[in-house]
Design a protein around this nucleic acid. Structure first.
Lengths: 201, 201
DNA sequence: CAGCTTTACTACCGAGCGGTTTCAAATTCG
DNA sequence: CGAATTTGAAACCGCTCGGTAGTAAAGCTG
Protein backbone atom coordinates (compact mmCIF):
# COMPACT_ATOMS: atom_id res chain seq x y z
CA UNK A 1 0.00 0.00 0.00
CA UNK A 2 2.90 2.31 0.64
CA UNK A 3 5.44 3.66 -1.81
CA UNK A 4 3.50 2.24 -4.73
CA UNK A 5 3.27 4.17 -7.98
CA UNK A 6 -0.12 5.77 -8.46
CA UNK A 7 -2.53 4.40 -11.06
CA UNK A 8 -3.20 6.29 -14.24
CA UNK A 9 -6.64 7.44 -13.12
CA UNK A 10 -7.25 10.41 -10.86
CA UNK A 11 -5.48 13.66 -10.30
CA UNK A 12 -1.81 13.39 -11.24
CA UNK A 13 0.83 13.84 -8.56
CA UNK A 14 2.80 17.00 -8.31
CA UNK A 15 5.69 15.28 -6.55
CA UNK A 16 8.30 12.81 -7.76
CA UNK A 17 8.41 9.96 -5.28
CA UNK A 18 12.02 9.07 -5.99
CA UNK A 19 13.14 12.64 -5.65
CA UNK A 20 11.28 12.99 -2.38
CA UNK A 21 12.79 9.79 -1.00
CA UNK A 22 16.28 11.00 -1.92
CA UNK A 23 15.57 14.28 -0.16
CA UNK A 24 14.25 12.56 2.94
CA UNK A 25 17.17 10.16 3.02
CA UNK A 26 19.51 13.13 3.24
CA UNK A 27 17.32 14.66 5.95
CA UNK A 28 17.27 11.56 8.17
CA UNK A 29 20.95 11.09 7.50
CA UNK A 30 21.73 14.55 8.77
CA UNK A 31 19.42 14.76 11.76
CA UNK A 32 18.77 11.20 12.84
CA UNK A 33 15.36 9.63 13.30
CA UNK A 34 14.12 11.07 16.58
CA UNK A 35 15.45 14.55 15.90
CA UNK A 36 13.61 14.70 12.59
CA UNK A 37 10.04 15.89 13.05
CA UNK A 38 7.14 15.51 10.67
CA UNK A 39 7.33 19.26 10.16
CA UNK A 40 10.91 18.86 8.96
CA UNK A 41 9.76 16.12 6.63
CA UNK A 42 6.93 18.23 5.26
CA UNK A 43 9.27 21.14 4.67
CA UNK A 44 12.05 19.10 3.14
CA UNK A 45 9.81 17.05 0.88
CA UNK A 46 7.55 19.86 -0.26
CA UNK A 47 4.66 17.44 0.18
CA UNK A 48 1.73 17.94 2.52
CA UNK A 49 1.17 15.70 5.49
CA UNK A 50 -1.81 13.74 4.20
CA UNK A 51 0.06 13.01 0.96
CA UNK A 52 3.00 11.76 3.00
CA UNK A 53 0.85 9.50 5.13
CA UNK A 54 -1.12 8.26 2.13
CA UNK A 55 2.06 7.48 0.22
CA UNK A 56 4.37 6.17 2.92
CA UNK A 57 2.16 5.14 5.84
CA UNK A 58 3.80 6.65 8.89
CA UNK A 59 7.03 8.21 10.02
CA UNK A 60 8.31 4.81 11.06
CA UNK A 61 7.34 3.11 7.79
CA UNK A 62 8.79 6.00 5.85
CA UNK A 63 12.07 5.55 7.66
CA UNK A 64 12.04 1.84 6.93
CA UNK A 65 11.53 2.59 3.24
CA UNK A 66 14.37 5.09 3.33
CA UNK A 67 16.62 2.57 5.05
CA UNK A 68 15.94 -0.18 2.54
CA UNK A 69 16.59 2.17 -0.32
CA UNK A 70 19.77 3.38 1.32
CA UNK A 71 21.04 -0.12 2.00
CA UNK A 72 20.63 -1.13 -1.65
CA UNK A 73 22.23 2.09 -2.87
CA UNK A 74 25.10 1.74 -0.44
CA UNK A 75 25.85 -1.82 -1.40
CA UNK A 76 25.83 -0.86 -5.04
CA UNK A 77 28.35 1.83 -4.22
CA UNK A 78 30.58 -0.63 -2.40
CA UNK A 79 30.30 -3.02 -5.28
CA UNK A 80 31.33 -0.33 -7.73
CA UNK A 81 34.24 0.85 -5.58
CA UNK A 82 35.53 -2.71 -5.37
CA UNK A 83 35.06 -3.28 -9.07
CA UNK A 84 37.08 -0.16 -9.81
CA UNK A 85 39.85 -1.29 -7.49
CA UNK A 86 41.15 -4.06 -9.69
CA UNK A 87 43.20 -6.91 -8.22
CA UNK A 88 46.44 -7.49 -6.40
CA UNK A 89 47.66 -5.58 -3.37
CA UNK A 90 47.11 -2.31 -5.19
CA UNK A 91 43.39 -3.07 -5.14
CA UNK A 92 43.34 -2.61 -1.38
CA UNK A 93 45.09 0.75 -1.67
CA UNK A 94 42.86 1.85 -4.52
CA UNK A 95 39.77 0.93 -2.53
CA UNK A 96 40.94 2.88 0.50
CA UNK A 97 41.67 5.88 -1.67
CA UNK A 98 38.23 5.76 -3.27
CA UNK A 99 36.63 5.32 0.11
CA UNK A 100 38.45 8.34 1.48
CA UNK A 101 37.19 10.45 -1.39
CA UNK A 102 33.66 9.54 -0.42
CA UNK A 103 34.43 10.05 3.27
CA UNK A 104 35.49 13.67 2.87
CA UNK A 105 32.61 14.48 0.54
CA UNK A 106 29.61 16.39 1.83
CA UNK A 107 27.55 13.26 2.32
CA UNK A 108 30.47 11.36 3.78
CA UNK A 109 30.71 13.77 6.66
CA UNK A 110 27.46 12.41 8.00
CA UNK A 111 28.94 8.93 8.32
CA UNK A 112 26.58 6.12 7.49
CA UNK A 113 22.84 6.29 7.86
CA UNK A 114 22.73 2.63 8.86
CA UNK A 115 25.31 3.00 11.60
CA UNK A 116 23.56 6.07 12.89
CA UNK A 117 20.16 4.40 12.84
CA UNK A 118 21.36 1.25 14.53
CA UNK A 119 23.00 3.21 17.30
CA UNK A 120 19.91 5.28 17.84
CA UNK A 121 17.11 2.80 17.34
CA UNK A 122 18.55 -0.58 18.16
CA UNK A 123 15.61 -2.91 18.65
CA UNK A 124 12.88 -0.29 18.42
CA UNK A 125 12.10 -0.67 14.72
CA UNK A 126 10.27 -3.97 14.56
CA UNK A 127 11.09 -6.72 12.13
CA UNK A 128 14.04 -5.20 10.42
CA UNK A 129 17.50 -5.76 11.81
CA UNK A 130 19.14 -3.32 9.43
CA UNK A 131 22.34 -2.89 11.40
CA UNK A 132 23.19 -6.55 11.32
CA UNK A 133 22.18 -6.81 7.66
CA UNK A 134 24.39 -3.91 6.77
CA UNK A 135 27.40 -5.38 8.51
CA UNK A 136 26.93 -8.80 6.93
CA UNK A 137 26.53 -7.42 3.44
CA UNK A 138 29.47 -5.08 3.84
CA UNK A 139 31.57 -7.96 5.07
CA UNK A 140 30.46 -10.01 2.09
CA UNK A 141 31.55 -7.30 -0.32
CA UNK A 142 34.86 -6.78 1.41
CA UNK A 143 35.59 -10.48 1.23
CA UNK A 144 35.60 -10.23 -2.56
CA UNK A 145 37.99 -7.30 -2.34
CA UNK A 146 40.27 -9.30 -0.07
CA UNK A 147 40.11 -12.28 -2.40
CA UNK A 148 41.14 -10.07 -5.30
CA UNK A 149 43.90 -8.35 -3.34
CA UNK A 150 45.45 -11.40 -1.68
CA UNK A 151 44.84 -14.41 -3.91
CA UNK A 152 45.97 -17.21 -1.65
CA UNK A 153 43.40 -19.90 -2.32
CA UNK A 154 42.13 -22.26 0.35
CA UNK A 155 45.39 -22.26 2.24
CA UNK A 156 45.00 -18.67 3.32
CA UNK A 157 41.32 -18.86 4.27
CA UNK A 158 41.99 -17.94 7.86
CA UNK A 159 43.97 -14.86 6.97
CA UNK A 160 41.47 -13.83 4.33
CA UNK A 161 38.70 -13.91 6.89
CA UNK A 162 40.78 -11.96 9.38
CA UNK A 163 41.59 -9.28 6.83
CA UNK A 164 37.94 -9.04 5.89
CA UNK A 165 36.87 -8.74 9.51
CA UNK A 166 39.44 -6.10 10.37
CA UNK A 167 38.52 -4.10 7.29
CA UNK A 168 34.84 -4.34 8.13
CA UNK A 169 35.30 -3.22 11.71
CA UNK A 170 37.75 -0.52 10.67
CA UNK A 171 35.31 0.92 8.14
CA UNK A 172 32.50 0.92 10.68
CA UNK A 173 34.81 2.82 12.99
CA UNK A 174 35.66 5.24 10.23
CA UNK A 175 31.96 5.94 9.85
CA UNK A 176 31.89 6.94 13.49
CA UNK A 177 34.93 9.16 13.00
CA UNK A 178 33.32 10.77 9.98
CA UNK A 179 30.14 11.58 11.85
CA UNK A 180 31.99 12.93 14.85
CA UNK A 181 33.09 15.96 12.87
CA UNK A 182 36.63 14.93 12.08
CA UNK A 183 38.52 17.14 9.64
CA UNK A 184 39.64 15.93 6.24
CA UNK A 185 43.19 15.82 7.62
CA UNK A 186 42.18 13.58 10.49
CA UNK A 187 40.31 11.26 8.18
CA UNK A 188 43.30 11.18 5.87
CA UNK A 189 45.51 10.14 8.75
CA UNK A 190 43.20 7.31 9.74
CA UNK A 191 43.10 6.09 6.16
CA UNK A 192 46.87 6.35 5.82
CA UNK A 193 47.20 4.17 8.89
CA UNK A 194 45.19 1.47 7.17
CA UNK A 195 47.31 1.79 4.04
CA UNK A 196 50.33 0.88 6.15
CA UNK A 197 48.52 -2.02 7.77
CA UNK A 198 47.49 -3.34 4.39
CA UNK A 199 51.15 -3.35 3.38
CA UNK A 200 52.02 -5.40 6.42
CA UNK A 201 49.51 -8.09 5.46
CA UNK B 1 24.12 24.92 40.64
CA UNK B 2 23.60 21.41 39.38
CA UNK B 3 24.91 18.14 40.72
CA UNK B 4 26.27 19.80 43.81
CA UNK B 5 26.14 18.05 47.18
CA UNK B 6 23.50 19.52 49.44
CA UNK B 7 24.47 21.54 52.48
CA UNK B 8 24.07 20.11 55.96
CA UNK B 9 21.08 22.26 56.81
CA UNK B 10 17.54 21.48 55.74
CA UNK B 11 15.68 18.28 55.11
CA UNK B 12 18.11 15.49 54.20
CA UNK B 13 17.91 13.83 50.81
CA UNK B 14 16.36 10.44 50.42
CA UNK B 15 18.37 9.69 47.27
CA UNK B 16 22.05 9.00 46.69
CA UNK B 17 23.18 11.22 43.86
CA UNK B 18 25.97 8.93 42.73
CA UNK B 19 23.72 5.91 42.71
CA UNK B 20 21.11 7.81 40.72
CA UNK B 21 23.67 8.97 38.17
CA UNK B 22 24.92 5.43 37.73
CA UNK B 23 21.34 4.26 37.20
CA UNK B 24 20.63 7.00 34.68
CA UNK B 25 23.87 6.34 32.84
CA UNK B 26 22.71 2.79 32.27
CA UNK B 27 19.31 4.05 31.18
CA UNK B 28 20.64 6.50 28.58
CA UNK B 29 23.14 3.90 27.47
CA UNK B 30 20.38 1.41 26.78
CA UNK B 31 17.78 3.66 25.20
CA UNK B 32 19.66 6.62 23.77
CA UNK B 33 18.91 10.24 24.50
CA UNK B 34 15.80 10.98 22.48
CA UNK B 35 14.16 7.66 23.25
CA UNK B 36 14.55 8.24 26.97
CA UNK B 37 11.66 10.28 28.36
CA UNK B 38 11.53 12.17 31.63
CA UNK B 39 9.01 9.58 32.79
CA UNK B 40 11.62 6.89 32.20
CA UNK B 41 14.10 8.95 34.15
CA UNK B 42 11.70 9.45 37.04
CA UNK B 43 10.92 5.75 37.16
CA UNK B 44 14.52 4.61 36.86
CA UNK B 45 15.90 7.07 39.36
CA UNK B 46 13.16 6.76 41.94
CA UNK B 47 13.34 10.54 42.30
CA UNK B 48 10.50 12.93 41.65
CA UNK B 49 10.59 15.39 38.80
CA UNK B 50 11.10 18.57 40.81
CA UNK B 51 14.00 16.95 42.65
CA UNK B 52 15.54 15.94 39.35
CA UNK B 53 15.24 19.42 37.91
CA UNK B 54 16.51 21.04 41.11
CA UNK B 55 19.50 18.73 41.25
CA UNK B 56 20.47 18.40 37.61
CA UNK B 57 18.88 21.33 35.80
CA UNK B 58 17.25 19.83 32.74
CA UNK B 59 17.21 16.67 30.69
CA UNK B 60 19.96 18.06 28.49
CA UNK B 61 22.16 19.15 31.40
CA UNK B 62 21.54 15.85 33.10
CA UNK B 63 22.75 14.05 30.00
CA UNK B 64 25.83 16.25 29.85
CA UNK B 65 26.60 15.37 33.47
CA UNK B 66 26.12 11.68 32.69
CA UNK B 67 28.39 11.97 29.66
CA UNK B 68 31.19 13.66 31.57
CA UNK B 69 31.00 11.08 34.30
CA UNK B 70 30.99 8.31 31.74
CA UNK B 71 33.93 9.73 29.84
CA UNK B 72 36.06 9.88 32.97
CA UNK B 73 35.00 6.40 34.04
CA UNK B 74 35.66 5.01 30.60
CA UNK B 75 39.12 6.49 30.35
CA UNK B 76 39.97 5.11 33.74
CA UNK B 77 38.90 1.71 32.51
CA UNK B 78 41.07 2.01 29.41
CA UNK B 79 43.95 3.11 31.54
CA UNK B 80 43.54 0.12 33.80
CA UNK B 81 43.21 -2.32 30.92
CA UNK B 82 46.41 -0.99 29.41
CA UNK B 83 48.22 -1.07 32.73
CA UNK B 84 47.24 -4.71 33.16
CA UNK B 85 48.48 -5.56 29.69
CA UNK B 86 52.17 -5.24 30.45
CA UNK B 87 54.67 -4.66 27.68
CA UNK B 88 55.96 -6.31 24.54
CA UNK B 89 53.84 -7.75 21.76
CA UNK B 90 51.92 -9.80 24.28
CA UNK B 91 50.58 -6.55 25.70
CA UNK B 92 48.58 -6.00 22.54
CA UNK B 93 47.08 -9.49 22.76
CA UNK B 94 46.37 -9.14 26.45
CA UNK B 95 44.65 -5.83 25.86
CA UNK B 96 42.44 -7.27 23.13
CA UNK B 97 41.52 -10.18 25.35
CA UNK B 98 40.59 -7.91 28.21
CA UNK B 99 38.62 -5.70 25.88
CA UNK B 100 36.70 -8.67 24.54
CA UNK B 101 35.72 -9.69 28.05
CA UNK B 102 34.19 -6.28 28.54
CA UNK B 103 32.59 -6.38 25.10
CA UNK B 104 30.62 -9.54 25.75
CA UNK B 105 29.56 -8.40 29.22
CA UNK B 106 26.06 -7.13 29.81
CA UNK B 107 27.13 -3.52 29.60
CA UNK B 108 29.38 -4.16 26.65
CA UNK B 109 26.45 -5.26 24.54
CA UNK B 110 25.24 -1.67 24.48
CA UNK B 111 28.43 -0.51 22.82
CA UNK B 112 29.70 2.84 23.95
CA UNK B 113 27.53 5.61 25.30
CA UNK B 114 29.78 8.21 23.69
CA UNK B 115 29.62 6.65 20.25
CA UNK B 116 25.88 6.28 20.55
CA UNK B 117 25.43 9.86 21.70
CA UNK B 118 27.66 11.32 19.02
CA UNK B 119 25.81 9.46 16.30
CA UNK B 120 22.46 10.57 17.64
CA UNK B 121 23.13 14.11 18.76
CA UNK B 122 26.03 15.36 16.67
CA UNK B 123 26.08 19.12 17.04
CA UNK B 124 22.86 19.47 19.01
CA UNK B 125 24.36 19.48 22.48
CA UNK B 126 25.95 22.91 22.72
CA UNK B 127 29.47 23.49 23.85
CA UNK B 128 30.55 19.95 24.39
CA UNK B 129 32.10 18.01 21.55
CA UNK B 130 32.15 14.76 23.46
CA UNK B 131 32.58 12.52 20.45
CA UNK B 132 35.78 14.18 19.36
CA UNK B 133 37.05 14.32 22.94
CA UNK B 134 36.39 10.65 23.39
CA UNK B 135 38.25 9.71 20.23
CA UNK B 136 41.24 11.89 21.07
CA UNK B 137 41.53 10.57 24.61
CA UNK B 138 41.11 6.99 23.49
CA UNK B 139 43.79 7.53 20.88
CA UNK B 140 46.05 9.00 23.52
CA UNK B 141 45.63 5.96 25.73
CA UNK B 142 46.16 3.53 22.90
CA UNK B 143 49.37 5.29 21.94
CA UNK B 144 50.85 4.31 25.31
CA UNK B 145 49.79 0.73 24.71
CA UNK B 146 51.42 0.80 21.29
CA UNK B 147 54.58 2.31 22.76
CA UNK B 148 54.72 -0.48 25.32
CA UNK B 149 53.99 -3.21 22.79
CA UNK B 150 56.32 -2.06 19.99
CA UNK B 151 59.20 -0.19 21.57
CA UNK B 152 60.89 1.23 18.50
CA UNK B 153 61.81 4.70 19.66
CA UNK B 154 61.81 7.71 17.37
CA UNK B 155 62.67 5.68 14.31
CA UNK B 156 59.32 3.94 14.27
CA UNK B 157 57.20 6.99 14.99
CA UNK B 158 55.28 6.69 11.75
CA UNK B 159 54.39 3.05 12.34
CA UNK B 160 53.51 3.72 15.95
CA UNK B 161 51.05 6.36 14.91
CA UNK B 162 49.56 4.13 12.24
CA UNK B 163 49.09 1.28 14.71
CA UNK B 164 47.46 3.64 17.16
CA UNK B 165 45.12 5.02 14.52
CA UNK B 166 44.07 1.64 13.21
CA UNK B 167 43.48 0.38 16.73
CA UNK B 168 41.42 3.46 17.56
CA UNK B 169 39.26 3.16 14.46
CA UNK B 170 38.93 -0.57 14.89
CA UNK B 171 37.73 -0.22 18.47
CA UNK B 172 35.21 2.43 17.47
CA UNK B 173 33.94 0.01 14.86
CA UNK B 174 33.78 -2.75 17.41
CA UNK B 175 31.55 -0.54 19.52
CA UNK B 176 29.19 -0.32 16.58
CA UNK B 177 29.29 -4.09 16.17
CA UNK B 178 28.60 -4.55 19.86
CA UNK B 179 25.56 -2.31 19.78
CA UNK B 180 24.18 -3.90 16.65
CA UNK B 181 23.34 -7.05 18.54
CA UNK B 182 26.25 -9.22 17.48
CA UNK B 183 26.62 -12.53 19.27
CA UNK B 184 29.58 -13.34 21.48
CA UNK B 185 30.85 -15.61 18.71
CA UNK B 186 30.77 -12.82 16.17
CA UNK B 187 32.57 -10.46 18.50
CA UNK B 188 35.12 -13.13 19.20
CA UNK B 189 35.77 -13.51 15.48
CA UNK B 190 36.28 -9.78 15.02
CA UNK B 191 38.70 -9.70 17.93
CA UNK B 192 40.55 -12.75 16.64
CA UNK B 193 41.02 -10.95 13.35
CA UNK B 194 42.77 -8.12 15.14
CA UNK B 195 44.97 -10.58 17.02
CA UNK B 196 46.24 -11.80 13.67
CA UNK B 197 46.79 -8.28 12.42
CA UNK B 198 48.72 -7.40 15.53
CA UNK B 199 51.02 -10.33 14.83
CA UNK B 200 51.66 -9.01 11.35
CA UNK B 201 52.83 -5.66 12.70
C1' DC C 1 9.64 25.54 70.71
C1' DA C 2 10.00 29.01 66.80
C1' DG C 3 12.08 30.18 62.59
C1' DC C 4 14.68 28.96 58.64
C1' DT C 5 16.15 26.04 55.01
C1' DT C 6 15.94 22.25 52.07
C1' DT C 7 13.55 18.31 50.20
C1' DA C 8 9.32 15.31 48.93
C1' DC C 9 5.33 15.05 46.39
C1' DT C 10 0.88 16.02 43.93
C1' DA C 11 -1.01 18.43 40.49
C1' DC C 12 -0.68 21.02 36.72
C1' DC C 13 0.97 23.58 32.20
C1' DG C 14 1.98 25.19 27.36
C1' DA C 15 4.04 23.38 23.37
C1' DG C 16 4.98 20.37 19.84
C1' DC C 17 4.53 15.76 18.56
C1' DG C 18 2.67 12.16 15.12
C1' DG C 19 -1.48 11.49 12.88
C1' DT C 20 -6.55 12.64 10.85
C1' DT C 21 -10.58 14.86 8.98
C1' DT C 22 -12.48 17.50 5.49
C1' DC C 23 -13.17 19.44 1.22
C1' DA C 24 -11.78 21.52 -3.16
C1' DA C 25 -9.16 20.69 -7.49
C1' DA C 26 -7.57 17.87 -11.24
C1' DT C 27 -7.65 14.08 -14.11
C1' DT C 28 -9.66 9.51 -16.47
C1' DC C 29 -13.38 6.82 -18.18
C1' DG C 30 -18.20 5.75 -19.51
C1' DC D 1 -20.73 15.97 -20.09
C1' DG D 2 -20.88 13.71 -15.51
C1' DA D 3 -19.58 10.04 -12.32
C1' DA D 4 -15.57 8.12 -10.24
C1' DT D 5 -11.05 8.47 -8.46
C1' DT D 6 -7.01 10.39 -6.75
C1' DT D 7 -4.28 14.25 -5.04
C1' DG D 8 -3.61 19.05 -2.90
C1' DA D 9 -4.27 21.90 0.87
C1' DA D 10 -5.75 23.73 5.29
C1' DA D 11 -7.43 23.10 9.68
C1' DC D 12 -7.74 20.22 13.34
C1' DC D 13 -6.94 16.51 17.32
C1' DG D 14 -5.54 13.82 21.32
C1' DC D 15 -1.49 12.83 23.59
C1' DT D 16 2.87 12.92 25.49
C1' DC D 17 6.68 15.65 25.96
C1' DG D 18 9.90 18.51 28.97
C1' DG D 19 9.31 21.59 32.61
C1' DT D 20 6.81 24.26 37.09
C1' DA D 21 3.85 25.85 41.11
C1' DG D 22 2.50 25.22 45.38
C1' DT D 23 2.45 22.92 49.63
C1' DA D 24 3.46 19.57 53.24
C1' DA D 25 7.26 17.41 55.66
C1' DA D 26 11.79 16.99 57.79
C1' DG D 27 15.85 18.36 59.44
C1' DC D 28 19.10 22.23 61.57
C1' DT D 29 19.85 26.53 64.57
C1' DG D 30 18.75 29.74 68.09
Amino acid sequence: MSAIASTAVGRPRLFDEERVLAELTALFWRKGYSQTTMSDIVESSGMHKPSLYRTFGSKEELFAIVLRRYLAERMQMFSQLIAESGSGISAAHKFLTLFEIDAVSERGRDGCLMVMASNELRGTLPGYDFASDYRQQMRQQLSTLVAAAWPGGESEAEFARARTDVLTTYLLGLHVVMRSGASAEEIHEYVQAMHLTVDAW
